[in-house]
Lab assay of single mutants.
Amino acid sequence: LETFPLDVLVNTAAEDLPRGVDPSRKENYLSDEDFKAVFGMTRSAFANLPLWKQQNLKKEKGLF
C-alpha cells in the first residue's frame, strides 16, 4: 500500500485525496512512523480498539 505524508491526508476532502486513497481509511496510508506519531500507538494496538474509539481518534486527528 502506498503511503502519503500526513499533511496530504489530514483534513482533506475525499475529492482532494491522491488517486486510490480510500477516504474512510486514511490512516492506512500513513507510514508506520507517522501513524505512531499521530495516534501514539502501533497499528495493531489501534486495530484492537473498539470501532467507536478508532473513529473518535480519527476525528480528533483530522483523518475521518
Rank of each mutant, 00 (worst) to 15 (best):
F64Q: 14
F64P: 05
L51V: 12
F4A: 03
N48H: 12
T3Y: 15
V38H: 05
V10M: 14
F35G: 00
P18R: 02
G40I: 04
E27S: 01
Y29L: 04
A47M: 14
E33H: 10
K59I: 12
V38Q: 03
A47F: 12
V8K: 10
E33Q: 11
S24E: 14
F46R: 00
L1K: 12
A37T: 13
K59N: 07
R25A: 10
F64N: 14
G62C: 08
P5A: 06
T12G: 08
P23V: 09
Q54E: 00
N28C: 14
L9S: 02
K58N: 01
N56K: 15
N48Y: 09
F39H: 00
E60D: 11
L57S: 02
V21N: 02
S31A: 07
S24V: 08
E2R: 09
L9V: 02
A37D: 11
R19W: 10
S24F: 13
R43W: 05
K58D: 00
P23N: 05
A45P: 00
K36V: 15
T12S: 12
F46G: 00
V10Q: 14
D7S: 14
V10G: 03
L6M: 09
R19P: 15
R25V: 08
L6E: 02
Q54G: 00
L6V: 09
G62I: 01
D7P: 06
N48G: 13
V21M: 07
N11W: 07
K59G: 05
N11Y: 06
A37K: 13
Q54Y: 01
S31N: 09
M41L: 07
Y29I: 01
K53S: 11
L6N: 03
V8F: 15
R43E: 01
L30R: 01
N28M: 15
K58S: 03
A14G: 09
S24N: 14
E33I: 11
W52M: 09
P5R: 03
L57P: 00
V21P: 03
V21F: 07
M41P: 00
S24H: 13
T12W: 10
A45I: 10
D22L: 04
F35N: 00
T12I: 10
L30C: 03
V38I: 09
T42H: 08
W52R: 08
A14W: 12
L30D: 01
D34G: 04
L57V: 05
L9Y: 01
A14D: 15
L1E: 11
E27C: 04
N56Y: 13
S24T: 15
A13F: 07
L57H: 04
N56Q: 14
R19M: 14
E60C: 09
P23A: 11
D34F: 02
L1F: 15
L63E: 02
K58Q: 02
Q54L: 01
W52C: 12
M41D: 00
K59E: 09
A37M: 13
W52L: 08
K53C: 13
D34C: 06
K53N: 10
G20S: 10
W52K: 08
V10L: 14
E2M: 15
G40C: 11
F35D: 00
A45Q: 13
L17T: 05
K36S: 14
L9I: 05
N11P: 05
L57Y: 05
K61L: 09
D32V: 07
A37V: 12
K36G: 10
F64D: 15
N28R: 09
L49F: 06
T3N: 08
L63M: 08
V10P: 02
F39L: 07
R43L: 05
F35L: 01
K36Y: 15
A47T: 11
L51W: 12
L63D: 03
L30A: 01
G20K: 05
F46P: 00
V21W: 05
K58E: 02
F39V: 01
V21K: 03
S44D: 13
D16N: 11
L17Q: 03
P18Q: 03
N28D: 15
P50I: 01
L30V: 04
K59R: 12
P23R: 06
S24I: 07
A13Q: 11
P23S: 07
G40T: 05
Q55C: 14
E15K: 13
D22G: 01
A14Y: 10
V21E: 03
E60L: 12
T12H: 08
K26I: 15
L30F: 02
K26R: 14
L1A: 13
F46Q: 00
L51D: 11
V38L: 11
G62W: 03
E60I: 10
L51A: 11
W52P: 07
L17W: 06
A47C: 09
S31R: 07
E60K: 10
Y29A: 05
S44W: 13
N11R: 09
S31H: 05
E2S: 12
A13L: 11
K59L: 15
D22R: 03
G20I: 08
T42R: 05
E27P: 02
L51T: 10
N11H: 11
L30Q: 01
F39D: 00
N48Q: 13
L9D: 01
F4G: 03
R19Q: 15
P18Y: 01
E33D: 13
F46W: 08
T42Q: 07
A14V: 12
R19E: 15
F39N: 00
E27K: 01
T42V: 08
D32S: 07
A45M: 13
T3A: 07
G62A: 03
K53M: 14
K61I: 07
G62R: 04
F64V: 11
D16F: 09
F46S: 00
L1N: 13
W52E: 13
K26E: 03
T42P: 08
A14M: 10
N56V: 14
L49C: 03
D34K: 02
V21C: 04
N48L: 14
L1T: 13
V38G: 01
Q55K: 11
G40P: 00
R43Y: 07
N11C: 13
Q54A: 05
Q55Y: 11
N28L: 14
A14T: 13
K26A: 06
D22E: 06
Y29N: 05
K59C: 12
E60H: 07
V10K: 10
L6H: 04
R25Q: 10
S31G: 06
K53E: 15
W52N: 08
D22K: 15
K59P: 00
V21T: 04
E33V: 11
D32A: 09
G62F: 07
P18N: 03
E33T: 11
K36C: 14
N28Q: 15
N56G: 10
P23C: 07
V21Y: 05
L63N: 03
T12F: 08
G40L: 09
V38C: 11
T42I: 08
Q54V: 02
Q55L: 15
F46K: 00
L6D: 03
Q55H: 11
R43K: 11
F4C: 06
R25G: 05
K53D: 11
K53V: 14
W52I: 10
D32K: 06
V8H: 07
Q55A: 11
A47D: 09
